[in-house]
Design a protein around this nucleic acid. Sequence first.
DNA 1: ATGAAAGCGCTAACAT
DNA 2: ATGTTAGCGCTTTCAT
Lengths: 323, 323
Amino acid sequence: MTTIADVARAARVSISTVSYVLSGKRTISPDTKERVTQAIADLNYSPHASARSLASRSTQVIGLQAPLRAGVDVHVVMEIVAGIARAARANRYNILLLTGDDSEALEHAARASAVDALVVMDVESTDPRIETVKNLPAPSVLIGLPSESGDAHCVDFDFEAAGRLAAARLAELGHKRVALFGAPQEVMERHTSYVDRLRQGFIGGCEEHGLSGSVHACPTSTDARATVDGIFAENPSMTGVLFHNEGALPHVAPRIIAGGRDVIAMCPEHLARTVPGLTDTIIVPAEDIGAAAARAALDLLAGTKRDRIELLPPRLGSTSAEA
Amino acid sequence: MTTIADVARAARVSISTVSYVLSGKRTISPDTKERVTQAIADLNYSPHASARSLASRSTQVIGLQAPLRAGVDVHVVMEIVAGIARAARANRYNILLLTGDDSEALEHAARASAVDALVVMDVESTDPRIETVKNLPAPSVLIGLPSESGDAHCVDFDFEAAGRLAAARLAELGHKRVALFGAPQEVMERHTSYVDRLRQGFIGGCEEHGLSGSVHACPTSTDARATVDGIFAENPSMTGVLFHNEGALPHVAPRIIAGGRDVIAMCPEHLARTVPGLTDTIIVPAEDIGAAAARAALDLLAGTKRDRIELLPPRLGSTSAEA
DNA sequence: ATGAAAGCGCTAACAT
DNA sequence: ATGTTAGCGCTTTCAT
């Protein structure tokens, strides 16, 4: 193992000079700097991460608690993680993937000074982890919008605005009776924050534009078809739909479209591209959410002042299925 | 911050005693152990990860390079990561997600002693990272089977056996003319290792069982339908299919099934469940692959002797779409 | 069964 | 502009 002492010896300078060349926290004569840089290259030296973080009290690591379980939209999770990774790397941070989805894992990482900050994904309306991170020595950012966020820092997609946007668009298209086809029953009943916010935005938007709107749970599996057929049978005047269920979308949307109805799909971009005939798409900017969360964490570390809650706005995409 | 010295003081023992209580590397009198344990609990003490790894020369961290880009099957990636995470946690390891998909990221992590071992996902047939990890101070495990694996340790799904298994099953079902519908053209042309191995196994299996078999690229998007229709139009006697393309499966498989043909799908379990009528399923045991890779890494760290290449066998699942 | 103390490889005062 | 050195919080050898 090459250490800073080896580099110092090779460059005939003191250890601290090498350290300062590395950190740039001191002005170094061009000549010295050159010798040190050369020695570092010659010896293929990398500072020992643990030694550095022990001395500097900073790990250059962000702890990430991601839901690796089923039931969440893996595409969205992956994109968010990718966004965090991208922002982290741009700032020379690495990501410690916490293997454990509970408060304990967060506590341990923070208490052990294994991370400088924490990013917690998939935060539910009322989540015990909100209380946990509040009392931790490391700053943290939640992805999701709990009902009682307290003074926690949160980043999320603006589901309410998305619901409102969809309603406005359906009104613009001339519909009178519209519906939101959303998560499976069990998710609806959990009152996951985003489910409720989307519904509120949608219903609010309908009222605003004089639409009659309703909300329906939608199973992910194949019997989604029967469910949807049933709903339309009971409500023949329902002509426009906001669809928010990635599992069911490819199975059900073509059917609704074939029935001559307008479908606005809220889903990741790649999925929208595989379903032809969608009237519009509301893209969830998953990667941006991740990047925003990482930046929030870095802001907290830097002491930059910022809003506690950052909601990323929805945007309406064109319906560009390739076929 | 609570340190080991605080604990030692509270328990009225020496620092080393606390350390030994924690590590269990020394026999401690019940009385002392009790006092130390109590003090640790009272003070809510967690050892400082960096300090520990600096002194012990071990980080308890596995570096993971995962493909966060598009084009790979995110479900599979996530499941593999989950498998690694599970095995890692079971052994008190954490995972450092390397933000960077190149050799440099691997080098840096290893050289900086930020990780004890590396797991590299999505390794292609000929991958520069194979050479990179060979010369690193940390042991590494590749997920994938490069054509020249050298003395690298590899874990992967046994795609060849899977192809063979599918052919055997199609023969058993009485088919004479069968096909493998696989990755999109561009992936086929890259000769990604698994694509070739699957093809070889399938063709080999066909020969073995006297089947006439062919291999076809399959676009992921909606024009998969046209492609597939074209193939069947040209080969009306083709009655059985091994389908290996998660993106196209939900769009195309129902159509093939409706045409009265047998479809064996090779895909993650959750996807198989959304497509009714599949004759059989070959489940890619993604989570097991991750777990196996993690265990391989831990074995290397422990010096346990093991095979360089571990291929996980395919298994035929029943066709249990819920509908 | 326990303690004392010498590192581990760095950073950041405190020198000059 | 550079060097010296006291830590950072642990593990582990060497004592007793």
